[in-house]
Amino acid sequence: MTNEKTKSRKDRQGSTRSSGRRRGFNALDVFLILLILCCVGLAVLAYLPGSGFLRKSDRAQITYVIEFEGVRPDFASYIREGDRVTSSEGCDLGTVAAGVEVGVCNVVRYDPATADVVSSAHPSLSNLLVTVSLTADSDPLNGYSSEGLRIAVGAELDCMFPGFTGRGTCISITENGTGTGGER
């Protein structure tokens, strides 16, 4: 009788061991770990200073002008209305909304004879003004951005058009209305 009890206990222990050994690492374990990691990650993101996470962001339809200074005037023909504009990192910067304006590229110098500052047009280079329309993320304090890239007056943008690439400066922004979309 005692031997039978001992035997059956040993059997049970054996089955427990084998079931424990078999348990291993399954999909549920992975899911639980990922869930915990996600919770920790979200908490960290939410409290990082300046993090855009959990911040409300609206969308706005904007039109902005990029100025390319000191460019050959014939390059204007490579930028056409409707062309898609991307940044060098691949961020969407919008679509060319109007024909390219070719402006004068002024050269400023000091004339020692008259002690005046003289401004004259560069003989072979021009400034290109490209108007771009974009549905951008809009933040009450941080202004407009597209895919994380800030669009602001004074900001330099590495732009890529289908037929032209160059570094320009945003010189004006106009908000045309609220775009489609909502919270980020």
Binding site: R17, G20, R23, L32
Partner: peptide
């Protein structure tokens, strides 16, 4: 006695993560 060679379970890892946190 009972869990020899059982290895790390999800609970063990969760506890470790919480401790590290």
């Amino acid at each position: 006695k009972t869990g020899k060679g059982r290895g790390l379970t999800a609970l063990d890892i969760a506890v470790i993560i919480i401790l590290i946190a």
